Computed example of a mutant assay.
Amino acid sequence: MTGQPTPRSLIVTFYGAYGRGSAGRPAGPVPIAALIRLLGAVGVDAPSVRSAVSRLKRRGLLVADRTDAGAAGYALSEDARQLLDDGDRRIYGHPDTGDGAREAAGGWLLAVFSVPEQERHKRHLLRSRLARLGFGTAAPGVWIAPDHLYDETRHTLARLELSPYVDLFRGAHADFEPTEQAVRRWWDLEQLAKLHRGFLDAQEPVLERWAGRAIPDPEDAYRDYVLALDSWRFLPYADPGLPPALLPRDWPGVRAAEVFTTLHDRLYDAGFAYVREALTAMRA
Rank of each mutant, 00 (worst) to 15 (best):
R66N: 13
M282W: 02
D86K: 07
R89N: 09
S128F: 03
W143H: 15
A34P: 06
L279R: 03
R59W: 04
L246W: 02
A273M: 08
G106A: 15
P95D: 00
S54T: 04
A211F: 11
D79P: 02
R81E: 08
L207M: 11
I36T: 09
L126I: 10
L263E: 03
A46T: 13
D85Q: 07
A211M: 12
F135E: 11
A256S: 10
D68W: 01
D269V: 07
P116M: 05
A104L: 11
W143Q: 15
T137H: 09
V226K: 00
L38K: 04
L200N: 11
A27G: 08
R223Q: 13
L39N: 04
G198R: 05
A214S: 14
H173I: 10
G19I: 02
R20K: 03
G134V: 02
L242Y: 01
D151P: 00
G3H: 10
V12C: 11
D45A: 11
F169D: 11
P240Y: 05
S22M: 07
F169H: 15
Q118E: 09
Q191W: 12
W210L: 08
D175G: 06
P205R: 14
P252H: 08
A33V: 08
A138E: 08
D45Q: 13
R127A: 11
H196E: 09
Y92F: 15
E208D: 13
G19Q: 06
R276D: 10
A278C: 10
R8H: 06
L160I: 04
P26Q: 03
R102T: 15
R170H: 04
L149E: 07
T67Y: 03
T13F: 01
G60N: 02
D45S: 12
T2D: 14
K194R: 12
F199G: 07
R159C: 04
E208A: 15
